[in-house]
């Protein structure tokens, strides 16, 4: 569906991408994660034929992303993280422009457009100048999902959305997936992507450092636990997969490797759990873990 091979992109002397390989298959949601400035948007803009790669290949539907951009775009929709629109046009006008540039028209599309505007609670009669960042993003999302694309490329599309709208967005991509469509979703928040993605790739400083299914990456993720017990817990040090353990009387703070979680809970529960809080792993943890692994090798 979508495949890059050893992509390299330089801006002057600065190397933004240094051999990026990702592959998205039909019917899957692919998460593309990395911190600010890692090269997510650069990769995506090469895939969209807006930037020309210095080396390597970017192909979508088996066609070259730069040379056959127009043919590719007929079957593909894109939502950027920062949506900029024409201040004097209304949201509805902009959506119509995008749809007509795509060549989508007909009753079906109009119905879908109305339905999506309803779901995203977008008022299409307002001028773009008066829209907030999230509302501008909704305009792009409505235009993208109203068109009948086979592949969606979404670059941090939820950065301006509130939690409610983020749910709607997640429903939309899951629906797309059910229809056999593919999605490339970038983000710098691991937990956000985790919920919907089948596979993820993690990029840092222009290089993919990890990729695979969530199960394959499980070993990389650590859960933060805060536990309060009736009796003080002992013997935790002996267990594998525990990090940054802090114990203060009846309370415990620790990080557990995801694959060791079960054993730790079993160990703790006889002491009588009063309170249990867990926080999902952050991108930072993944990096830390990655370097620890790399160092240990």
């Amino acid at each position: 569906m979508l495949k890059t091979t050893d992509l390299v992109k330089r801006f002057g002397k600065f190397t933004a991408l240094n051999g990026v390989n990702i592959e998205v298959n039909q019917g899957e949601i692919y998460g593309f994660i990395g911190p600010n400035g890692a090269g997510k948007s650069t990769t995506i803009r090469i895939l969209l034929g807006m930037l020309k790669a210095d080396a390597g290949e970017a192909k979508i539907f088996g066609q070259d992303a730069w040379k056959e951009a127009v043919q590719i775009h007929q079957r593909m929709a894109y939502v950027p993280g920062d949506v900029n629109l024409w201040p004097r046009l209304t949201g509805g006008e902009v959506i119509d422009l995008f749809l007509s540039l795509r060549g989508s028209r007909g009753k079906q599309v109009r119905k879908r457009r109305e339905e999506l505007m309803e779901r995203f609670q977008l008022d299409p009669t307002k001028k773009c100048a008066t829209y907030s960042k999230g509302n501008r993003q909704k305009v792009a999302l409505v235009a993208a999902f109203a068109s009948d694309a086979d592949l969606y490329i979404l670059d941090e599309p939820t950065s301006g959305l509130d939690p409610l709208m983020e749910r709607v967005f997640q429903e939309c991509i899951l629906e797309a997936k059910r229809e056999g469509k593919s999605v490339l979703l970038s983000s710098h928040i691991l937990s956000e992507v985790e919920k919907v993605c089948d596979r993820i790739a993690i990029i840092r400083q222009g290089e993919i450092i990890e990729s695979g299914t969530l199960a394959q990456l499980r070993h990389l993720t650590r859960t933060h636990l805060q536990i309060e017990t009736r009796q003080p817990v002992s013997g935790l040090q002996a267990l594998a997969g525990i990090h940054h353990l802090e114990q203060k009387g009846h309370t415990l703070a620790l990080q557990v490797d995801a694959d060791e979680l079960d054993r730790v809970i079993q160990h703790v529960s006889p002491y009588g759990i009063v309170k249990l809080e867990s926080a999902p792993p952050t991108l930072e943890d993944v990096f830390l873990r990655h370097y620890e692994d790399a160092g240990g090798r």
Binding site: L48, G49, M50, V70, Q71, H73, Q74, M76, A77, Y78, V79, P80, D82, V83, N84, L85, W86, F98, L101, R102, G103, A140, A143, I153
Partner: peptide, 11 residues
């Protein structure tokens, strides 16, 4: 940044 979405369409 207004050309960004335009260029992502079959244009």
């Amino acid at each position: 940044g207004r050309m960004e979405i335009i260029q992502s369409l079959p244009v």
